[in-house]
Nucleic acid binder design. Structure first.
Lengths: 200, 200
DNA sequence: CTTGAAGTATACCGACCAGTCTAGTACTAT
DNA sequence: ATAGTACTAGACTGGTCGGTATACTTCAAG
């Protein structure tokens, strides 16, 4: 059916934008429905609860980011470490564009949910964690490739990839704190200098 | 006056714990009053709004962290780069203890507010940014000392310090996502490998 | 043409929200 | 003793929250 997926998708897209540019707990279901021009009845037909909507929004972000930013940056046609720099540039452009459009730099949609909901809602916490791991996995591959090609001396590949992802989360957090996307461009490239040595 | 400062301080301490272990928007004033055993009238006598309370809580966190974790780690009696590792250990112990006490790893109080409120409340955003800069400043000093002593080759000291702080924010975010303080111990020390080169 | 499911619309629920108001008590300075 | 101020108490307001209930429409299959 057309109407079904249209409405559901419309709710999902509207909620994704609102949660990302504002926050999960400060955006109510009524607001989402109004903005999406959908009735509350329809909303609860597709999503049993706000929590379920949150999980679906996270999943959609994961898919979309993997298909766009991540796909462009982590193409195996680039040397492994260059992929990281391309990812930084993608993040920079994404956050800059969002900041321009909404007036505030929104930060990472997963990081936002983690900071806001991780202590309150175990299901959202685990879902966000899964999304983070899904994206960090691409860094892991790049790091492994870099070690294999000799571009990087041997090190703890798993931990280094996690550290690199964490760094990028932190840089986005600071950029959000200053509402200044340029910080990502200035600090981001240093992601390539991070190394977690092999534990002995 | 005794009663005055007692009540105000009690509200502040209670709110600090609740905001940190849960979240700013999900903790209501009524909850704070009940937990602090204070009437709503008293609350609004000392704080004109929830936002003002938020600012005061951030400031208290800044002072307390500077006097404890930061003071212990960034003592000039230690070699500059060792201070960073000591700070990581302090963060680890702090988060682990909080996680044990409250069941959930709370993350950085400043990072939490940034992610939750930065897009919604400019005053809270700026206050949190100020707290971040205040603490990052100690890293800046350590980095400068390290360059001076030759422990670190010349680099962009300001940017490197910011990058290092951002990294630690990111590591705490990931630890919160996994609800696992050990991540801080495993990834944290790599903070010393981060370098932002002098811009040319 | 009928039946039943999918989807929509909206009134409504109790709980809670930040914040106000009024009436009070306790203490201080004169 | 009195006046004024700092502080406390808690009922109350208008509004919003997530979620429910019920009645409706649309549409496809038999």
């Amino acid at each position: 059916m057309n109407r079904t997926s249209d409405t559901r998708q419309h709710i999902l897209d509207t909620a994704a934008t609102l949660f990302h540019t504002q926050s999960f707990s400060d955006v109510g279901i009524a607001t989402i429905c109004k903005q999406a021009d959908v009735s509350k009845g329809s909303f609860f037909h597709f999503f049993p609860s706000k929590q379920a909507l949150g999980v679906a929004v996270l999943e959609q972000f994961r898919e979309k980011i993997n298909e766009t930013l991540v796909a462009r940056a982590f193409s195996s046609q680039y040397p492994p470490m260059e992929r990281l720099l391309r990812f930084v540039e993608e993040l920079y452009m994404f956050q800059r564009e969002q900041a321009k459009e909404h007036g505030h730099l929104p930060g990472c949609p997963f990081g936002n949910i983690v900071m806001e909901q991780a202590t309150q809602d175990e299901i959202l916490r685990k879902k966000a964690d899964g999304c983070i791991r899904s994206i960090a996995n691409h860094i892991r591959t790049a790091v492994s490739d870099a070690v294999q090609s000799g571009e990087l001396a041997p090190l703890d590949e798993e931990a280094t990839a996690e550290a690199m992802f964490g760094y990028l989360e932190g840089v986005q957090l600071m950029a959000k704190a200053r509402n200044d996307a340029e910080l990502i461009r200035r600090l981001g490239p240093a992601v390539a200098t991070i190394r977690v040595p092999q534990q002995t």
